[in-house]
């Protein structure tokens, strides 16, 4: 082994530890009961926290809310952002940049500030403390992210294929079905995953717009942590991390396992 190679192997080991240690910590804590300083290894192991997570009706509601919000944010966000990004990309430079600026602002606004503003508007609509209200709030940053994705995609888009199809007599619907959607498979998959994750991880917007009445998994994890229930919080944190990893993994596989450039 050359020194250069062993250095590289060493850095790979270090990176592996760095990336996986926090997740491993969650796994162990989630099954460790009454695990206090200074013991390095838990003395008693039980699955109570996991059982509670799925047995307790309010946790189940939170989980359901989270899934419904994330899936609908992904679907609606992608369905809206695709035509928006495309229209912006086909426009003049000025329009394109303005849309990009708006989209990034939606992403960049601190959720605490955006939430405080949206809270009042959602209440005015009579949607305070409802899942629909929270969904509308989640849609704001999600739409920002996804518009940026499709803006990037369509800025590099080759229009000649569409034009050729149109010349050959393919109607709008046919063009989308047989040409555009297959070509857009990768960005759409990535957009769905991104939309899902933006909503799935959301805390501040849910808290403010949902006003405590809409429970989601991230809020539950926070509540368990603030109740000193570390074991349950760890189980909840994994219940958050695992589907997120799964969604990203699936989207990578479906997209052909090539890295994407987002934002």
């Amino acid at each position: 082994m050359t020194p250069r190679l062993s250095m590289r192997a060493l850095s790979v080991v270090a990176l592996t530890l760095f990336a996986s240690a926090p997740l491993a910590m969650l796994v162990v804590t989630s099954i460790a009961r009454g695990w206090f300083y200074p013991s390095v290894v838990p003395s008693s192991v039980d699955g109570g926290a996991w059982a509670e997570l799925f047995r307790d009706a309010s946790h189940r509601t939170a989980l359901l809310n989270s899934v419904v919000l994330a899936v609908s944010t992904a679907l609606v966000g992608t369905a809206l952002a695709l035509p928006l990004g495309r229209a912006a990309a086909l426009s003049t430079r000025g329009v394109r940049r303005s849309v990009a600026l708006l989209a990034f602002t939606a992403v960049a606004l601190p959720p605490v500030a955006l939430g405080a503003g949206l809270q009042l508007s959602v209440l005015t609509l009579g949607l305070g403390g409802t899942v629909v209200g929270v969904f509308l709030a989640h849609l704001v940053p999600a739409l920002g992210y996804l518009t940026l994705v499709f803006l990037g995609v369509f800025t590099r888009w080759d229009l000649r294929l569409e034009e050729a199809a149109a010349t050959l007599g393919a109607g709008g619907l046919e063009r989308w079905r047989h040409l555009m959607l297959p070509l857009l498979r990768r960005p759409i998959t990535e957009a769905l995953a991104l939309g899902f994750l933006v909503s799935w991880a959301q805390v501040a917007l849910t808290l403010l717009v949902g006003g405590g009445a809409v429970r989601t998994l991230p809020l539950d994890v926070l509540a368990m942590l603030q109740a000193g229930q570390d074991q349950r919080a760890a189980a909840g944190a994994l219940a958050l991390a695992i589907p997120a990893l799964f969604v990203l993994g699936v989207s990578r596989v479906a997209a052909g396992n090539t890295p994407a450039v987002v934002a």
Partner: peptide, 25 residues
């Protein structure tokens, strides 16, 4: 390629979950 896959692991993990893990660690 392996190293890059491993290091990508935390990418989708929600902030709350990451914070809990770091607190425990």
């Amino acid at each position: 390629r392996f190293a890059r896959t491993v290091v990508a692991l935390p990418l989708p993990v929600p902030n709350v979950a990451a914070a809990v893990a770091v607190l425990l660690l």
